[in-house]
Amino acid sequence: MSSTVTTQASKSPPRPQAPVGPRLIRWGVTLIILIPFIWGALGLEISPGRIARAPELVWNIVSAMFPPDWSILGRSMDKMLESLYIAWVATIIGAMFSFVFGFLAATNMAPRWIATPIRALLSAIRAFPELVLAIMLIPAFGLGAFTGTLALGLHSIGTLGKLTSEVIEGIDEGPLEAMKSAGGTKLSTIRFGVLPQAMPNILAYWLYRFEINVRASAVLGIIGAGGIGADLFSFLKFRDFPQAGMTLLVVMVTVLLIDGVSGAVRRRIISGEPGKGPVSKLMGLVRTPRPAPQQ
C-alpha cells in the first residue's frame, strides 16, 4: 500500500494537524461532570460498602411488599380516584389560565412591556415545587384536596404558560403576515393564523401535563393535601408492607394506563394520524366511523 501512497501524495493536499480544541473540550466536559459528582458523592457519604448493601436492603422491602394485601384494593382505588380528580382539575386550571398567559408571554403576540413581566411571573411560579406550594397554602386553605388542587393548578399554570408561549413563538409567521396584509384584525389573525398552527402542540402539552400531575397528585397526600400519597406514607411508616405494596401497585398500574392512553392521543394529535402502538390500535377499534354526509 505504501508505494501507491507515495505516488498519491503529490496529487493530494497536505495532511492537516489533528486539532486540539475538541480534545480539550472533551476533557473539560469530563471534568465538569466528574468533579461535582465526586463532590456530591463525598458529601453524601456514599461508600462502596453502602452501595454494595443497598440492593439487598431494597430487595428486602420489595419482597415484603409483594404479594400485596388485596383486601385494601377498594380503598386504594378510591384514594387513587381522588388523586386523579385532583390531577384533572389542576390540569384544567393550568390549561385555562396558561392559555391566556401563554399569549401574553409570547413576544410575537404581546408587546415587550407585557411579555417580560408575565414571563418573569411564570418562571417565579414554576420555581416552587408543587409540594412546597401546597405546604405554603395549607395555613390559608387547610388540609385536604382543595389545597392540593390549588397548588398543582398554580404550578401547572407556570409550566404550561411557558410551554404555550414557546409554541406560539415557534409558529410560522408567514400566514400571519398574509392575514395582516389582507386587513385581518388581531383576533382573527390569532383565530385563523396562530391557533391552527399552535393548538396541536398546546393540546399535547396539556395532556403531558396531566400525566405529570397524576404523579404529583399521588404524592400530595404525604403532607395531607389529598389523594393516595397519605396511604402509602402511613403504611410505610408503620411498616405495613403488603398494604404499601397494594397502594404502590394501584398507583403504578394507573399511571401506566394513563401514560399509555395519553401518549397515544398525543401522538395522534401531533401527527394527525393514528399511531402504531397497542393503545392506538384499541382506540381505532373503539372509534366509530363518521356518520354519512346528509343527502
Binding site: 500500500m1 501512497v5 493530494s12 497536505p14 492537516p16
Partner: peptide, 17 residues
C-alpha cells in the same frame, strides 16, 4: 494512518478534521 491514506486516495485529506 490507513484512514488518512484512504482520504488521500480520494483527495480530501485536508478535510479530515
Amino acid at each position: 494512518e490507513v484512514a488518512l491514506q484512504s482520504l488521500e486516495r480520494v483527495g480530501i485529506v485536508d478535510k479530515a478534521y
